[in-house]
Design a protein around this nucleic acid. Structure first.
Lengths: 221, 221
DNA sequence: CGCAAATTTGAACATCGTCAACTCTAGTGG
DNA sequence: CCACTAGAGTTGACGATGTTCAAATTTGCG
């Protein structure tokens, strides 16, 4: 997505920017038609808070993405928190401004479609992920997903460039922190992943994919 | 969605219709740009086949819906089967015809957005559903979802008007058929659901929602 | 009526959640 | 530069829950 040439992004960039620090809530969407944000820098996590105080994480967003773009076209409202995961810079516009800007413009509407489809693909992946019934497979699937979405090639390893804790991972795949910890430990011992500078590193993506297939053999093969 | 007034649906209807019987595969999407179908009558289930032969069900579609609309805008391809669940009538157009027809037309593009968002909402629900860690909650959440999407009010009960087996339900929420059976049995004994004409009937939606809250108390309250 | 599909049930076993205690790490301030 | 602290991660024991496999039973359709 070339920012300079993209009218939708340019429209966001023509507004005032805002800066958030790790842990700050950028948006709490509980009513309809919340403002829309373009992420210039950093990562944002979306979660709902269960009565227990446990976070149920839906998605991680990264620079270049717009949220919550689906809500601009949705009647359904959920009580969601959008929280900065590191230093974040966003540009904000109102739901009305956004709809006004794209309305009647086929090219922009097509871009909106593609952006919604991108987010939809993330959810399809989530469903695939959550359908694995054993914790080991779920963790591997999650790591492969994070690598695909946030990974940076570094020689023949992939560094997952997003500051996620074990708790974050666990909260996003219906698992406890302890189990996530234990399963990641297994992967470390097998030489499939490691930690470097507080970031997860996948040492061999192909091997990890094979491990995922093997781990589901009992049930699925 | 008023068919007579809807240009997109009218466009589908101007093509030849096709009829399928229960169990027939309408579409097998494994390459890009598959044809698009408008469902005039009946239900269609989408699944992938795991190496074991087990079905992993993604979605159930009903009359008035278009599939696979997201694929028209997607680079990602999955090996999906679209199978008739009962007598189905569809109208088919090619991916190219579809894109040609909507391109440059803001009103149609907006309708496409809304249709994609509707499907997206189903997946969001799926994720919510799968995040429940105990089988009982997962079953209840699934039944409430099916009731919302396929339910017909009948006095003060809701009949789920789609021919799903226990295996179908189980395959869509990462559970074995046996467990689904046992959990549904619990619900029957509690007088929350029953079977009528091979269809699931929810006797009291509010009570069932309360039951869902109670069943998650330990973990979430 | 008979068959195939769908469902039910039981018992043994594996997995994961729970709880509690402990260790490690990075960042803070003296 | 070190001590302190809060957050993050690790580990073990135990029990609850769901899977597995096998067998019996029910259901609906031709």
């Amino acid at each position: 997505m070339d920012k300079a040439k993209n009218p939708l992004v340019r429209y966001f960039l023509s507004h005032k920017h805002r800066v958030y620090k790790k842990g700050q809530i950028i948006l709490r969407a509980y009513m309809s038609a919340p403002d829309l944000y373009y992420i210039e820098k950093g990562h944002v996590q979306v979660y709902t808070l269960l009565p227990s105080g446990v976070q149920k994480i839906y998605v991680f967003y990264k620079a270049g993405e717009i949220f919550p773009i689906v809500m601009a076209f949705n009647k359904i409202n959920k009580n969601l928190f959008y929280e900065a995961m590191d230093d974040v810079v966003v540009y904000k516009i109102s739901d009305n401004d956004f709809l006004g800007f794209v309305s009647g413009k086929p090219k922009l509407l097509l871009e909106v479609i593609h952006r919604i489809v991108d987010i939809h693909n993330i959810y399809v992946d989530r469903v695939d992920n959550l359908e694995y019934t054993n914790a080991y497979s779920r963790i591997i699937a999650r790591l492969l997903f994070l690598a695909k979405r946030f990974g940076k090639q570094d020689e023949n390893t992939v560094i997952i460039q997003i500051p996620v804790t074990h708790a974050d991972i666990a909260n996003s795949i219906a698992m406890t922190r302890e189990t996530a910890s234990r399963e990641i430990e297994k992967l470390k011992k097998k030489g499939l992943v490691k930690i470097k500078n507080r970031l997860l590193v996948i040492l061999d993506t192909e091997k990890l994919e094979k491990e995922l297939n093997n781990s589901t053999e009992k049930r699925y093969l």
